[in-house]
Design a protein around this nucleic acid. Structure first.
Length: 479
RNA sequence: CGGGGUGUGGCGAAGCUUGGUAUCGCGCUUGGUUCGGGACCAAGAGACCUCGGGUUCGAAUCCCGACACUCCGACCA
């Protein structure tokens, strides 16, 4: 019954095929496009604008905590990459290499950075001498390359944009504090800016970063109840410092190895935003990072005074510092409604002849479709209130999804059953053994997402082996 | 990297079995009428059918290969 035009533009229903829905949204909201190289994606202006807003939020936080931005080279000599054994083993399978310079074969092949620990270490080896040189709190915004087998928009690119923070400290305590602080920065960003509730915790040894002593993570639950690792922070101990021979003279005039951290957040988070907040009308963006926070749509704009009034509303709202856009094209109102819903604009303001006569406008929230008639006198008060309400509404909805689909279990069967029938996070005790972790994947289809900071006592034994267990782990299916 | 699917104007598809250089809808352009949930009429523009070989008088169509996208696994942020 639906007419053809509608069918053409429609996106796949998320309940029918979540992955198809996801790629439809990425493309139709004009966030991304494919390039001619697999896994190397084009971030279109609207998608890049979201990233710019995330960058601005994060960069401010990094600088507020004393970090400085730097720019490291994109190529790593093979010998440098191989200095830290675990690290090279972890990354070797997905490195891409430069072997030619012009028409000459290079003496030593150069890896296109998959991450820059080795570059920072090499540099620090040269500049660090004294405890007075520490700490070094560095960050860089760049892209990295990892030759992934399968790729998906935002979630797994071969080349992706990110920031990677790298710090060097005199003591382990200070480095651990830094690692935890940066994880909290990510968690705070997710919750307060992106409206994505997180679970904070540590990765198991199996899941931790190649070369790290400890990996901290924030895990988010997507609308389909799968987990997305949304930010990580690693404590390296002095392993890299030893491998790269970074030393400094401490206060007691003894030669020591400094302690190191790294932490990263990538454009993957945009995939997280899409899958956390999106719905069957398309993207839904949290106001704090939406490139367009408010769109003003004139109704019957040819009628006298309508366009002028709509333009006036745009400038009044812009004067508040909001990101506002008006659409004065001659597309029909219905077309525009659907278009800005697809693009996830948090608030729509409709203004037509009837409204002007009555001295009001109609505001429509993207998150729940709620319409509010706002007197034009109160525009500057009500619009920011509605945007806050959307921001809060998105968080609450995501939090409810997380809470409703987090379960506790005491047996492998129970975990398997939950994972297969409901999906979500399952908490169990765990003995800490790798074999039990592998068995859980084999028998229940779930991997460990994290050992949450917020521990609970759910029993005394590991559900896999029955041995004493002190830690609680969260299991789930991950992106 | 294993198993499946797909590749035809910008988008979505038909045509392929049974070879004869291409069809439809949307979008786009121009003009007009419209405008509170993807408007309508009219006139236009736009495709060597993913790429490379082969068979043939002739290939979108048959054969071989490559590449890309996609889904399911394994690997990974």
């Amino acid at each position: 019954m639906a007419n053809d035009k509608k069918q053409v533009e429609q996106i796949t229903d998320m309940e029918v095929d979540f992955t198809k829905w996801y790629t439809d949204v990425c493309k139709k909201a004009e966030l991304i496009d494919y390039s001619s190289v697999k896994g190397l994606m084009i971030l279109r202006p609207y998608g890049y604008a979201i990233w710019e807003n995330i960058m601005a939020e994060l960069d401010r936080r990094f600088k507020d905590t004393g970090h400085q931005n730097v720019s490291m080279p994109m190529l790593i000599p093979e010998s440098l990459l191989q200095k830290e054994k675990d690290h090279v083993e972890g990354f070797a399978p997905e490195c891409a290499w430069v072997t030619m310079g012009g028409s000459e074969e290079l003496e030593e092949k150069l890896c296109i950075r998959p991450t820059s620990e080795t570059l920072f270490c090499d540099h620090w080896h040269n500049i660090v001498h004294s405890y007075r040189d520490l700490p070094l709190l560095y960050n860089q915004w760049c892209s990295v390359l990892r030759w992934e087998k399968t790729t998906r928009p935002f979630l797994r690119h071969r080349e992706f944009l990110w920031q990677e923070g790298h710090t060097l400290h005199a003591t382990a305590e200070e480095a651990i504090k830094e690692t935890e602080q940066q994880l909290e920065t990510y968690a705070e960003l997710c919750e307060n800016v992106l409206a994505m509730p997180v679970v904070r915790g540590c990765k198991t040894d199996k899941e931790k970063f190649a070369g790290a002593e400890r990996t901290y993570t924030i895990e988010c639950m997507m609308h389909d109840r799968k987990a997305l690792q949304s930010g990580t922070s690693h404590y390296f101990g002095d392993g890299f410092a030893r491998a790269f021979d970074i030393t400094f003279t401490d206060k007691e005039n003894k030669l020591s190895h400094p302690h190191q951290t790294s932490w990263g957040l990538s454009t993957r988070i945009i995939g997280g935003i899409i899958m956390t907040h999106g719905d069957n009308s398309g993207l839904v963006l949290p106001p704090k990072i939406a490139p367009i926070q408010v769109v003003v749509l004139p109704i019957a704009q040819h009628k006298p005074g309508v366009t002028e009034k709509a333009e006036e509303l745009v400038s009044r709202l812009k004067a508040l510092g909001l990101r506002v856009s008006g659409d004065f094209t001659d597309n029909s109102p219905g077309w525009k409604f659907a278009e800005y819903e697809m693009k996830g604009v948090p608030l729509r303001v409709e203004i037509g002849p009837k409204d002007i006569e009555a001295g009001h406008c109609v505001c429509v929230r993207r998150d729940n479709g709620e319409k509010t008639v706002v007197s034009l006198d109160e525009l500057e008060i009500k619009v920011p209130e509605l945007l806050s309400a959307v921001q809060r509404g998105l968080f609450d909805k995501a939090k409810a999804n997380l809470d409703e689909h987090t379960y506790s279990a005491t047996s492998v069967e129970e975990v398997k059953n939950i994972v297969e029938t409901k999906g979500g996070f399952v908490k169990t005790m765990w003995c800490g053994g790798l074999d039990c972790e592998l068995a859980m994947k084999e028998r229940a289809g779930a991997t460990s997402r994290c050992i949450p900071f917020a521990q609970e006592h759910l029993g005394d034994v590991c559900p896999v082996c029955g041995k004493p267990a002190e830690k609680m782990v969260i299991w789930g299916v991950a992106y």
